[in-house]
Each structure stands twice: as structure tokens, then as C-alpha cells.
Design a protein around this nucleic acid. Structure first.
Length: 431
DNA sequence: GCGATCAGAT
DNA sequence: CACATCTGATCGC
């Protein structure tokens, strides 16, 4: 596609149409309530959430695209001055509420931008997304795939969110006398909270802004801002620190739950970074015991591959569960097989795992793209990357070893500096 | 004083 | 590390 026509999650001058995949902050950098640069295309749910994120945003610029339908857009080529017809099909990305992928078709070829996505094909929702995608493709391959490569490495293996949610529920049930806090962002992981609420028959505390978001999403009776009503609270991830947990534990026993795909991989396991089997975990006693710390290194069960069982105790009071809103490697693999991209470009370039996606998909006959800014500038074959690939893998291994050591030292590296106070007391305090 | 941008933090 | 987010400093208007 020629330059100057469309931007996806990119909010700078120079395009005629702007597409938003979802409302996470790292995809809206540059977008502000003063936005005037062009029409903003998004899904219906994103459109409903937009005013709360960007109060005063000119609503006449918002173009709502129904998911699964193909929409026709006409733009003007800056090169030739002639009309450019673009077909765009938003596909449910199964990431956070409102998140979509965009499939673009036109004379330029077929381009799929996944935004951030999950691809759990045993869920009906993802099956429908896959059908919509295949229908829109009509048997064609994707020429250029912009891929959510967050977990694009065989290293990353974790279960579906439903399985992970059940693991969280089982864990909470095993700790009936503890307060529970769960780290979440401003958007996403709602289904985990709903699942917990329904399984345990409790409401979930959220901070006031988050409650507004829940109401916009139509989740009316499950959440509360009254801490006296429940022992389960969702708190902003940035307030989820060792300091916060220690502080809370001086008042009453409190366990932190970190839902994330980040730490769930087979390499981490080989390096023995301290997974704790579910049956091995024990009731939280509230004591800052060296025993507990020992448990995360000495008491873990060594399992292999998909036998890994959460939770992983990564801090004195905190456990990680493999609940991820990003696709694991096998799901990325499935998407690649579905669209058979001729060229691939990873959209998460800041990741330490920025090995090019094609490295893992030699058999797909796809080109390796590197980028300069937002423009695709060169295309080279992938095999020469072996050295850097190994380096990055080694770096990751060292990283996880360090992580392990830090855990033994009670997460020293995660402690905020002594001068810092808890920035979000209001979100975590009792009463 | 406000918005944009960046560094630094978890 | 950094899934995404927040705070605080700085700069230009």
C-alpha cells in the first residue's frame, strides 16, 4: 500500500484514514482529545469506550466498523491523484474489549494487521473470527502480515484463558481466609474477573474509573467500589508491588495474583526458576517466613512442557498465573498457517524477544522484513539471523537465572526505592 | 498553565 | 525483561 493512505495505531500527520485496533495506551500514543488529523476507524465497543478515554474527542471523526463485515473506503492517492478503493474487514482479535484485527484488500494486495490478539480456537468466538478471516480472504494468501509477536517464540506455552481462570479460582478457594488482589490494566482481563466472581459467588472490587469502564462494557452487577463487600480486589498493575503487598499484610493476610503470559515458557522451566505445583502450595500464613521463600526454590515440582502447573510464586506474597491476552506461540503458528503470509513484520519491536517471526516459520515461504520507521525498507532472507537469535536466547536464559536469584532474595529488584510512597493508596487500602 | 515528549519506574 | 501504565521533568507555546 502506498504511503500517506492509512495508519494503524499510529497517530501522526500524513494519512487520510486512521485505524485503532484497541484502547491500550501503547496503541494510542499520539491520540488526544484534540485529534483533528483525520477520520478514526474503530470497532463498536472501542467507539463506546473512546469518550471516557478521550473526553471531548470530536465524535464526527469517529467511524464505527462492524466486526466481521467488509467495508469499502475510498481515498485519494497522493502520487497519482486518483481514487484508491480499500476494502477493510475488522476481525475480532479476542484481546481486550473492542480489540480487532484489520484485513485490508485492494490493488495494493492483501494486508492483515493483527493489533494485539489471542487465538484460542477451542472457543466459539475465536472460531467465528477465523471463519470471518477466511471468508474475507476468499482463498487468497495475505501479502503482508503485521503480527502481534509479543510471545512469538516456541518458548512461550500457556493454556487458554478459561483454563488459567479456573486455576486462579482453585487457588483462591485454597486460600479462604486471605484477601486477594489481582493486577489488571485499565482495559482487559474482565472475563477473568467475571469468571472468579461467578465461581466464588463474590463481587469484585475495582477502583472507581475501572467501575465506569465496567459499566460502559455492560458489566453492571459484578463489580463494586465498596471494599467491605468482598475479599477479592482488582488493582492497577502499577500499584501491584512488593511494598503494597507487605503493607497490606501488616493489616491482614493478602495474596497477590499476577495474570500474565510473560513468564510461562519451557526454557524458564529448564532453568528451574521456581514453579510451584498447585498441590504443593499452602495456605498463606501471613508470616514473612524464609520457609516460604525456600519453597519457591526448594519446594517446586520439576515438570516438563505442558505439565507445568501454576501458580508460580515470584514474590513473598505474589503468584503468577498464565492468563494472557496475547497469543501463545502455538496460536501464532495457527494464525500463520491460516493466512500463509508472504511477508511478516512484528509489531512489538521493543520486545526483548524481537527475533523476527519468520525465523520460526521457515516452512511458510515468507520473506523477512525489517523496517525503518514505519516504512518497509528492506527484505532479506532469514537464515543469517542465527547468531543474533542465539544471543537473544542466551540473554533470555541469563535473565531468568537472574530472576531466580532475585526471588531467593525476596524480589529485591522489584522493591521500589525507600523514598517512594505508594502512589495508589486509594486503590488498595481497606475500608 | 497546558500539551507534547521523554526518561524512568514497576 | 516489560504484557501496559503511571509519575515527573523538561520544553515550547
Amino acid at each position: 500500500m502506498e504511503k500517506g493512505l492509512v495508519s494503524i495505531d499510529r497517530w501522526v500527520k500524513g494519512s487520510q484514514a486512521y485505524f485503532l485496533t484497541h484502547l491500550h495506551a501503547d496503541h494510542t500514543r499520539g491520540l488526544s482529545p484534540l485529534w483533528t488529523l483525520g477520520p478514526l476507524f474503530c470497532s463498536p465497543i472501542t467507539a463506546r469506550l473512546l469518550p471516557s478515554r478521550f473526553p471531548g474527542l470530536d465524535s464526527s471523526l469517529i467511524r464505527v466498523l462492524e466486526i466481521g463485515l467488509t467495508h469499502s473506503i475510498t481515498l485519494i492517492s497522493k502520487c497519482s491523484g486518483s481514487e484508491v478503493h480499500i476494502l477493510v474487514t475488522p476481525i475480532d482479535a479476542n484481546h481486550c474489549p473492542g480489540a480487532v484485527m484489520y484485513l485490508f484488500r485492494g490493488e495494493f494486495g492483501t494486508v492483515l494487521h493483527t493489533g494485539d490478539f489471542r487465538w484460542e480456537l477451542d472457543s466459539e468466538r475465536a472460531q467465528l473470527a477465523r471463519r470471518n478471516l477466511l471468508d474475507a480472504l476468499g482463498g487468497e494468501r495475505v501479502d503482508l502480515l503485521y503480527l502481534d509477536n509479543t510471545y512469538c517464540h516456541p518458548f512461550f506455552s500457556f493454556p487458554t484463558r478459561e483454563v488459567a481462570a479456573q486455576q486462579v479460582v482453585d487457588f483462591i478457594k485454597q486460600h479462604p481466609n486471605d484477601e486477594i488482589i489481582i493486577a489488571v490494566d485499565n482495559l482487559g482481563k474482565e472475563n477473568l474477573l467475571v469468571y472468579i466472581s461467578q465461581a466464588l459467588g463474590v463481587k469484585i472490587w475495582v477502583w472507581p474509573e475501572r467501575l465506569k469502564t465496567m459499566h460502559i462494557l455492560g458489566l453492571d452487577d459484578i463489580f463494586t467500589t465498596d471494599t467491605s463487600l468482598t475479599r477479592v480486589r482488582a488493582v492497577p498493575r502499577y500499584s501491584f508491588t512488593l511494598d503494597t503487598l507487605e503493607g497490606l499484610n501488616t493489616i491482614c493476610p493478602t495474596i497477590g495474583i499476577m495474570p500474565s503470559g510473560l513468564t510461562w515458557g519451557s526454557l524458564a522451566f529448564e532453568k528451574d526458576i521456581g514453579y510451584v505445583g498447585l498441590s504443593e502450595s499452602e495456605g498463606h500464613s501471613g508470616e514473612k517466613s524464609k520457609n516460604n521463600r525456600k519453597r519457591s526454590t526448594n519446594g517446586n515440582i520439576k515438570l516438563a512442557g505442558d505439565q507445568i502447573k501454576p501458580p508460580w510464586k515470584f514474590q513473598e506474597y505474589s503468584y503468577s498465573f498464565p492468563y494472557s491476552d496475547h497469543a501463545c506461540f502455538s496460536e501464532i503458528q495457527e494464525l500463520m498457517r491460516t493466512v500463509l503470509p508472504k511477508n511478516v513484520f512484528g509489531i512489538v519491536s521493543a520486545s526483548s524477544f524481537d527475533i523476527h517471526p519468520c525465523h520460526h516459520f521457515d516452512n511458510l515461504n515468507c520473506e523477512l522484513c525489517t523496517v525503518s520507521g514505519s516504512e518497509i525498507s528492506t527484505k532479506v532472507r532469514g537464515n543469517h539471523l542465527d547468531a543474533s537469535f542465539r544471543n537473544k536466547l542466551n540473554r533470555r536464559a541469563v535473565l531468568h537465572q537472574n530472576l531466580n536469584r532475585s526471588n531467593v532474595k525476596c524480589g529485591r529488584h522489584l522493591q521500589p526505592s525507600a523514598s517512594k510512597t505508594n502512589r495508589n493508596e486509594g486503590c488498595t487500602e481497606k475500608g
